[in-house]
Design a protein around this nucleic acid. Structure first.
Lengths: 230, 230
DNA sequence: GAGTACACGTGAAAC
DNA sequence: TGTTTCACGTGTACT
């Protein structure tokens, strides 16, 4: 691709400009017939270039060392494996936070999701299984209303994860329904039931707690109400 | 530090061994009186070295490109700023997951913590504020017991975050107590009350749910019980 | 001695 | 324009 020895080095080599003791530049310039102002300029440029590259390398290596510390890697871990570990770590952390914020922590926007997970049932042919999850503002009667809704639909809760944080709540339930009364189309029943549940929620948010109060504070207050109801 | 042109290059340069067209090595070896078997060996070694270094660079750059994708960086983001962003991202993600798993997600081990956060009160001189947090197995009566305990201690719950996931629960409450009845030493009261609460929990875990059942399944069952109690 | 990893100086390309 | 970034080949040290 590129010549092994460039014209520039060759020239500098012949004129003695590239010897180890660079302090002799001036001397060389005065004693050598080839020495010119241009040569000095070129050498100065090379020196700048050299220095800039040095700083660039230092910058990169500095960041690499920070990464070594963050991953608690030995200072003698070589660059390639270090970077491989960094790639892996970033992937892990991204996945981890995604899972948590997606499935556990309440989001700022309301969500409803109903899934038929019948396929995962352990040979229970008489029941159909749904995964129900929703995210909304918390309110005192929310869970009670939810249980009543499920009861009226003749569904049984198998297990539930619930998170209430800062006045917002995310709930993930696995519910079972008898196949005599329900089929896959019951996903829509559930979805609609939840929807009206959340609508009741937003109404209660509007109407209840008539007295003023900070916005963020009010959110947290509602979490308190929930406890007090229990 | 090191000579600008090494003896090796100088020698190879004079013998013509380092010209761009490396295919002519054999020709050079046969026509040049300096050519020896040693020279060929040395050149082969250099070529191996060259190739190894090429591969090493490729390996490093490959990881850098992966990182570019993970951070959705332009493919023209330079190495240094890319690495700077990686450092920042890793720090953020670590902090984020630490916060969540530390303050929200229930841990596998039981924990009790009571803090006097009086200093943070907004000029409320007549009340003392505590931050109460605990993590344990969930059970149906847990929250009810908790509220009764706080009531008996004449403490009022200001707000609460609650997370129940996979049968374990983490609760963070901020409670207020009248300064006429409580001081900083009430931290101990609270701590002991919580401790007996959790002890009751572990007893109920041992005794209750006498019927068999999978270990993990049982955990989740208890989350269900909690809902049904509400 | 062969293999591996790093820092260096350099040429070239992008602005 | 000079400045900045990259890939390259090389010297050197460690194993």
């Amino acid at each position: 691709m590129q010549p092994e020895i460039s014209d520039q080095i060759f020239y500098a080599f012949l004129t003695g400009g590239l010897c180890a003791s660079s302090t002799s530049t001036t001397v060389t310039s005065s004693s050598d017939p080839f020495a010119t102002v241009y040569e000095d300029k070129a050498l100065a440029s090379l020196r700048n270039h050299k220095e800039a590259e040095r700083k660039r390398r230092a910058r990169i290596n500095s960041h690499l060392n920070k990464l070594r510390k963050l991953l608690s890697c030995n200072s003698k871990t070589d660059k390639s494996t270090l970077l491989a570990k960094v790639v892996q770590r970033v992937k892990e952390l991204k996945q981890q936070t995604l899972e948590i914020t997606d499935e556990t922590i309440p989001s700022e926007t309301d969500e409803i999701s109903v899934l038929n997970i019948e396929d995962c049932s352990r040979g229970d042919d008489r029941r159909i299984i749904f995964k129900v999850s929703f995210c909304c503002e918390d309110r005192p009667e929310l869970l009670k209303d939810l249980m009543e809704t499920l009861k009226s639909l003749q569904m049984e809760t198998l297990f539930a994860d619930m998170t209430t944080v800062g006045g917002r709540t995310r709930n993930v339930l696995v519910v079972a329904a008898d196949k005599e009364h329900h089929g896959v189309q019951s996903v829509n029943f559930l979805q609609n039931a939840l929807k009206s549940l959340l609508e009741r929620s937003s109404k209660s948010v509007m109407v209840g707690h008539g007295g003023g109060g900070g916005e963020e504070r009010l959110k947290r207050r509602r979490a308190l109400d929930h406890i007090i109801m229990v």
